[in-house]
């Protein structure tokens, strides 16, 4: 066999592989859900439940594909052309950005579904090492010089922005709304942060697998899931005296769904999240359900503490983002790596 035939055979081989791949696209409807980090397990189960529900209703089979990452990064990817039929992100601001910069969905997207388009909520709690050796009870323990704090980067992670705002809100309330004091408080807190991961899941793994830090600022759902799934009593959850109501919204990405012809399917996918069946899954994966009946059933599980809200305490995401997290905002001022 000479070189010429080898070359021709190799090229033919490649072509064969490629064409078999393009033929492999199946007939079922496909939906892409671009989500943030800690929802992996929740949507894995919900997608199956929804697929069954949809097939029963319409007879059509549906496959939901998932993409996960830090919320800011995911929004960026959708703007750059990641064809998400629906986005289920950590906070409204990132979806606002997709609407404003890429025009993929209308500006008033958040009023299209109940509860500000948030089928579930959560809050921010602390995870500490077993027995709480550093005796961490509340936000003011986080600025002690002997405490090392793990949180992801507010620039890329939605969870991290909730963490930051909760700390800021606590400092305001305990210093007669003195902004300078709040800034000092948050500065001290971030001085205690040795590693800033880009997403919530990365931080959890830094804290637990790599054993860095004394306390992890985490989504309540992430803390519960972690204690259930991985740690066998290595970490404990500490609920601070107050926190923030984290509202992770969901939306159809109109332009993409229209192109894929999936508007009806995508809308049904999100609406079904509010059903009793889905709300029960939500609660089992440790998100706070919004449906009264399910919330009551799981009332024992979720501690009731005073919670700030983004709209009433921080003037909404647009204002908070501009002030704290945009380039040249407060966060840039207080966090100087190294």
């Amino acid at each position: 066999m000479n070189a010429k035939t080898t070359l021709i055979l190799a090229v033919l081989g490649v072509l064969a592989v490629l064409s078999s791949v393009s033929l492999a696209q199946s007939g079922a409807a496909v939906l892409l859900n671009v989500s943030y980090d800690p929802t992996r397990e929740l949507y894995q189960e919900y997608n199956e439940v929804f697929a069954r529900h949809w097939e029963k209703e319409t007879g059509q089979k549906v496959t939901v594909r998932q993409s996960h990452g830090g919320a800011g990064k995911q929004a960026r990817a959708v703007m750059d052309g990641l064809e998400a039929d629906v986005m289920t992100l950590a906070l409204a601001y990132d979806i606002d950005e997709v609407s404003a910069r890429a025009g993929l969905l209308p500006k008033e997207w958040q009023s299209r579904l109940p509860h500000n388009s948030c089928p579930y909520t959560s809050t921010i709690v602390f995870l500490v090492r077993k027995g709480n050796p550093k005796n961490i009870k509340d936000w003011d323990d986080l600025i002690r010089s002997d405490v090392s704090v793990i949180t992801p980067n507010p620039k890329t992670s939605g969870g991290a922005r909730w963490n930051y705002l909760a700390a800021w809100g606590y400092a305001l309330q305990h210093n007669n709304n003195d902004e300078a004091k709040a800034k000092e408080f948050v500065t001290k807190l971030f001085k205690n942060v040795p590693v800033l991961d880009s997403g919530a899941r990365g931080s959890t793994i830094t804290f637990v697998q790599r054993s860095i830090g004394d306390v992890l600022l985490a989504w309540e759902n992430e803390a519960f899931l972690f204690m259930e799934k991985v740690s066998k009593g290595e970490v404990e959850m500490v609920v601070p005296s107050m926190s923030i109501l984290a509202e992770p919204p969901v939306t159809v990405v109109d332009k993409v769904a229209e192109k894929h012809g999936t508007v009806k399917l995508a809308t049904a996918y999100l609406q079904h999240l509010y059903s009793e069946e889905a709300q029960d899954i939500v609660a089992r994966y440790h998100y706070r359900p919004t449906l009264e009946s399910v919330a009551k059933k799981y009332a024992q599980k979720f501690p009731q503490i005073p919670m700030l809200t983004i709209d009433s305490d921080f003037g909404g995401w647009q204002v908070a983002q501009k002030k704290h997290f945009a380039d040249g905002g407060v966060f840039d001022d207080i966090y100087k790596p190294g």
Binding site: L32, R65, Q66, S67, H68, G69, A77, L82
Partner: peptide, 14 residues
């Protein structure tokens, strides 16, 4: 890893 990670979109199974 690096270059592919940026451009992939991380869609499971795709």
């Amino acid at each position: 890893f690096g270059a592919v990670s940026v451009i992939s979109g991380h869609i499971r199974g795709l």
